[in-house]
């Protein structure tokens, strides 16, 4: 059992939790993830490690309430227990040796990109951060990101924060006058696809983070497979970071829809019973 020691709402449906898992906190690195199962009847889902505190033994997770498990998780309070919490899984991001990085986060992806941006900053790189949200109510981690970035750009789809547009628009205008040696893009597949397309034109190394459906997170089921450079890879052990220029995003988008019907059915049932 793993105790939730802290919980905070980051916006209406994004929540942050700190979970006591000292052994995982000891080893965790940016880019890695955990798998959790809330209770005996629960599903195992992957969540990126959004932060770790080695001395206090805490792992930070940030999640959006989108499916049955995240909705259930969102209902838990500080002091409650999570039955299973496994990690740190996946490969750590390789962030050494870069001078000028641009970290891009789309929606919830911003929370996942934050530890990478911070790590780059801690390693001495100049970090520009571009984040995009649907509207200004959904903006995440603004203060945290400002603290570790040279320039922070926040866009909204509806312009409700004053800057209307997509992250790719900002990236494009940045690239007119600036060179980056690394771009990290984390967010919806479609966003990562278009960022990668753009950076490819400029020949800038681009790391994206895949978050497919997973069962075990240890390489034993193959449910998390993605095609990278024409080869099948398992995101849980070969990733979750991959070279954005080589990932087959269209296939990944197709695979993500696999259980939509079942999710809907189950969510409807729960609403019905509630």
């Amino acid at each position: 059992m793993y105790e939730i020691v802290y919980k905070r709402d980051l916006n209406n449906n994004v929540k942050m939790m700190k979970v006591a898992a000292p052994l995982i906190a000891k080893k965790a690195m940016p880019g890695q993830f955990i798998m959790l199962r809330i209770d005996e009847h629960g599903e195992r889902i992957p969540l990126t490690i959004a932060g770790y505190d080695r001395t206090k033994g805490l792992i930070t997770i940030i999640f959006q309430e989108v499916g049955q498990t995240t909705i259930k998780l969102g209902k838990l309070k500080s002091g409650d227990m999570i039955l299973d919490f496994v990690g740190p899984l996946g490969k750590a991001s390789h962030l050494e040796g870069y001078k000028n990085a641009c970290v891009i986060g789309g929606g919830l992806g911003t929370a996942i990109a934050y530890p990478q941006a911070k790590h780059l900053h801690d390693l001495g790189a100049n970090v520009d951060v571009i984040t995009g949200f649907r509207n200004s109510d959904l903006i995440l981690l603004e203060d945290e990101l400002r603290a570790i970035s040279n320039n922070l750009f926040i866009t909204t789809d509806d312009g409700s924060n004053g800057t209307k547009g997509f992250v790719t628009d900002v990236l494009k205008s940045q690239l007119q006058h600036k060179t980056y040696d690394l771009v990290i893009a984390i967010g919806p597949l479609i966003m990562m696809k278009f960022v990668s397309k753009l950076t490819k034109e400029y020949g800038i190394k681009t790391i994206i983070s895949m978050n497919p459906i997973m069962v075990d997170g240890t390489g034993m089921c193959g449910g998390c497979r993605v095609t990278v450079d024409g080869k099948t890879k398992f995101a849980c052990v070969d990733g979750p970071d991959f070279d954005g220029h080589l990932v087959d995003f269209d296939e990944a988008m197709m695979r993500q829809k696999m259980y939509h019907k079942e999710e809907e059915h189950k969510c409807k049932m729960e609403q019905h019973h509630a």
Binding site: Y259, K266, M269
Partner: peptide, 21 residues
């Protein structure tokens, strides 16, 4: 492996009593 793990370990044969489909 995935098919059987979903069914046996995660009890997908009892979906929706269990969450894994």
């Amino acid at each position: 492996n995935e098919f059987l793990t979903r069914i046996n370990l995660m009890k997908a044969y009892k979906f929706p009593e269990y969450d894994t489909p």
